[in-house]
Design a protein around this nucleic acid. Sequence first.
DNA 1: AGCTAATCGAGACGGTACGTCAGGTCTTTAC
DNA 2: GTAAAGACCTGACGTACCGTCTCGATTAGCT
Lengths: 205, 205, 205, 205
Amino acid sequence: MADPKTPEPTRRSERSRQAILTAAVELVGEVGYARLSVEAIAARAGVGKQTIYRWWPSKGAVVLDAFVELSGGSQPVALPDTGNLKADLREVLRATVKELTDPRFELPSRALTAESQMDPALSQQFVEAVLRPHLKALQERLRSAQRAGQVAKGVDLDVAVELFVGPLFHRWLLRTAPLTSAYADTVADLAIAALRPTARAGAPR
Amino acid sequence: MADPKTPEPTRRSERSRQAILTAAVELVGEVGYARLSVEAIAARAGVGKQTIYRWWPSKGAVVLDAFVELSGGSQPVALPDTGNLKADLREVLRATVKELTDPRFELPSRALTAESQMDPALSQQFVEAVLRPHLKALQERLRSAQRAGQVAKGVDLDVAVELFVGPLFHRWLLRTAPLTSAYADTVADLAIAALRPTARAGAPR
Amino acid sequence: MADPKTPEPTRRSERSRQAILTAAVELVGEVGYARLSVEAIAARAGVGKQTIYRWWPSKGAVVLDAFVELSGGSQPVALPDTGNLKADLREVLRATVKELTDPRFELPSRALTAESQMDPALSQQFVEAVLRPHLKALQERLRSAQRAGQVAKGVDLDVAVELFVGPLFHRWLLRTAPLTSAYADTVADLAIAALRPTARAGAPR
Amino acid sequence: MADPKTPEPTRRSERSRQAILTAAVELVGEVGYARLSVEAIAARAGVGKQTIYRWWPSKGAVVLDAFVELSGGSQPVALPDTGNLKADLREVLRATVKELTDPRFELPSRALTAESQMDPALSQQFVEAVLRPHLKALQERLRSAQRAGQVAKGVDLDVAVELFVGPLFHRWLLRTAPLTSAYADTVADLAIAALRPTARAGAPR
DNA sequence: AGCTAATCGAGACGGTACGTCAGGTCTTTAC
DNA sequence: GTAAAGACCTGACGTACCGTCTCGATTAGCT
């Protein structure tokens, strides 16, 4: 009578769930995402394939869950707000660089970003679960700066956020050049300059 | 001296090469990259699978070649230089947005970007063949502006370029918000503001 | 303890097994053994290739099973024993000729004989499953004749059997001359003559 | 102008022909007939594939030629005729056993016998080139014996020959039991007994 | 505490595609 | 015009996984 697509989550085996996510993380690290197979995850986790297919729609979804689990769930991201805008943002971008180049995170992150290209649903989840919290926090800091008069009033903060994050992401994803904390500083400074409330707002003269 | 794995390219059949690239483009458009198979390309092109494996190392490499062929080879990209920096860059970014959202290009672009994550060699080729020309051209325009005193002297133009391109790319790739020409304008204006030669220059102190 | 390469036969699909054997027989008849492919068998049987490879080590093994199934399994072969040795053996050899020239059996028989040359394991199975029962039955009849004094006491019946069967087989396999029931009679008569208890064998003069 | 199927044999390269046959023999010995490929023969012989296909219709034909070359061409087979029929025939059958079990000959012989099953044309050539001379010689010896009154007059010598050869061949091909010279002796004695001109014999009148 | 129904491990199944091997044809260059 | 070389189309190989589908054997939650 119940929708066959929605199994009872009450009966779900937590043991299996954990084993699957752990196996997924391990295997992504060992063989990479492309050569990762549901079969291998099931075997490593000591689990029937059906148990995976019952609870996740795709390989990507499993890896996403595993990744979220790994990065400590959806805990709200806290950014420093010392009043010193430049210092705060430099620190944030440096932290971002550190995370993007952390070997534990890099492989699954790239895999999920790649997979997101082909699977909009996964993309949505990925962005919401992993990315959005960071962007939101950054935006919050900028809003605070805007209230303090350090950022021009007319600036769209959605865009502003991407001014900081976009360049880092671009370099990371396309490997056009090494991604260093020096680069993070430069980007932070330039983006802050773009937002400063000179003459007639942030728009160029 | 010669690598035994690399066959003589003199004997190569141009007819087959073209048929393969055409078939690849068509099929990426029809079924998407994920469901694209070497087998299907060979069948569509009326070609033996071996002929593909003889000349390309992977599915991604074929699609990359096909994509380069499609976008008119490695012709040098020409940017407008009217003297009006803001107008020129707005036009460039608008053109970039148009290309990224052009249905003919979007699918293969996303596919190649995704595939590049898992295959650094492909990534390298992709960036050099497709991306670098655009970035170089943009950089050239900024250099011209720098000479004209519209951009602060100390600014690293490699970074500056990414200030323009990064946000667009970020939004396109992660689908955090719609990618419009209005957005292109906003990014252009903000990035130009970041670079303008103020009192203390745009470069980090 | 269990061989990991041998899957549980309890879960085996009888439907698939039958379909595969039937398809194999049909296809051997249609295209011959040399042009018979596992792929074609799988396609005709509506079965995945893996299902064939799971249960049989080679094309030859499938055809052997199919052939055994076709000739009614390993039912014990019954030979006539009317007391009239010459009549009985003529009948047996004529039946053998008939089977060797029966179009339904000839092709697979030749194929299996040929394949056996290259694959000793298959050879073993083929001989045991198909040939041995016939030889055993023939030997039994000769033993009975030996007890009745129609065959010399000292004769090795293993050899005697081949005296009857060898010539037929030789002619069938090498096509040195047509294989007819007249030939069967001649061979039967000569072989019986070879075995008869002579003056010096201690038999009645 | 000439039939494209029959190239000019005058221009044929003897060097290539020899190299091909040598390579074929070597490779059959190394990898067996089943895994022998025209490609490998060509490579080993330092010859283009076309050169093989130009002069031989099939892999089997090459191996047959190679085998004939190996066994010293179609030299007429000479059998002993000492007047002692039993001694002569024992010697002949022992020689046959020796040849069938000689490792240099066994593999190609089995291969050709096997291949002959699927290719009647090859079968014909094989029998004529390799087998017939032996059978003819054996038949000659029996004819001589028939003239000397050691073999009944009415016996069909074509059949008689197979009475000697058939059992050996049967045991060799089907591996029902080891093929020894003791076996050769037994068969020789029995077959001679079958042919002897006693009382009314078992042979057809 | 026992019943019953869903989930579980296991793995066979029909499939698709893989990347490789070889077949036999065709084309190019050298002799 | 034969030969060496080797690219080409074709077709089959045997393998890896896909996602679906039985199987008993747990294992909950409800009676």
